[in-house]
Every structure is written in structure tokens, then in C-alpha cells.
């Protein structure tokens, strides 16, 4: 991600590239990391819905992996995860451990 000088900006600072914020990775904000335990996953997709950072991918209607480039580690997915038989499918682990 590179900041533009004022001479490079468009008139009125219009941004012509939709969704170009993806060039800014927010994953480094994280101090706790969510880990997905697939065998406890009931595919409810609540984590996908509630993720404020669009950091949980779904492929063909099935939950796929975390996108750690953007996950800020808030833990909403882990808290809302119903899990299977009381076993959470998402747990939070301290980064670097």
C-alpha cells in the first residue's frame, strides 16, 4: 500500500477502484488468533455472518479457512460459535505461542 502525493490524486479525491482497502492488511492488529477445529464445526456460518472484518471465507456454501491477513482477532466468531455438543469449533489462542 502506497500513499499518493497530492498531484497524483484524482479531482475531488474520487476513488475509482472499489474496495481497494484490501491492500491494507489489518492482521497485524491481532493479539489473539482464532483457530478453527473442523470436526466440531456444524456449518452454521454464524462466524462468517458476524465477522466484522470479512476474514472468514465460505466456499460453495461451506465454511473455509480464516483469512489471517485481515482478522483483527476480536473473538466474536469464537464467542458466537455454537460448536458441536458443547465443543467449540473456534477457539482463541494467544499470538506467538
Amino acid at each position: 500500500m502506497k500513499l499518493k502525493g497530492w498531484k497524483e490524486l484524482t479531482p475531488g479525491a474520487v476513488i475509482t477502484e472499489a474496495g481497494n482497502a484490501v491492500q491494507f492488511k489489518t492482521g497485524s492488529w491481532r493479539s489473539f488468533k482464532p483457530v478453527w477445529i473442523e470436526e466440531n464445526c456444524i456449518q452454521c456460518l454464524f462466524c462468517w455472518l458476524y465477522c466484522p472484518d470479512m476474514a472468514i471465507k465460505v466456499r460453495d456454501g461451506k465454511r473455509a479457512e480464516f483469512d489471517y491477513d485481515y482478522c483483527k482477532g476480536c473473538g466474536i466468531c469464537a464467542l458466537e460459535c455454537p460448536g458441536r455438543k458443547g465443543n467449540k469449533a473456534i477457539i482463541m489462542v494467544e499470538e506467538g505461542k
Partner: peptide, 18 residues
Amino acid sequence: LSSGHRLCSGCGAPTVVK
């Protein structure tokens, strides 16, 4: 609404917009 926005970790607003 794409990833890479700078709202705080755990903010409610992007989920509302989404």
C-alpha cells in the same frame, strides 16, 4: 464491504453494514 477497513477490532458497525 471489503476487508482492510480500519474500524476497531470487534466493532459492531461493519457487521450492520454487511
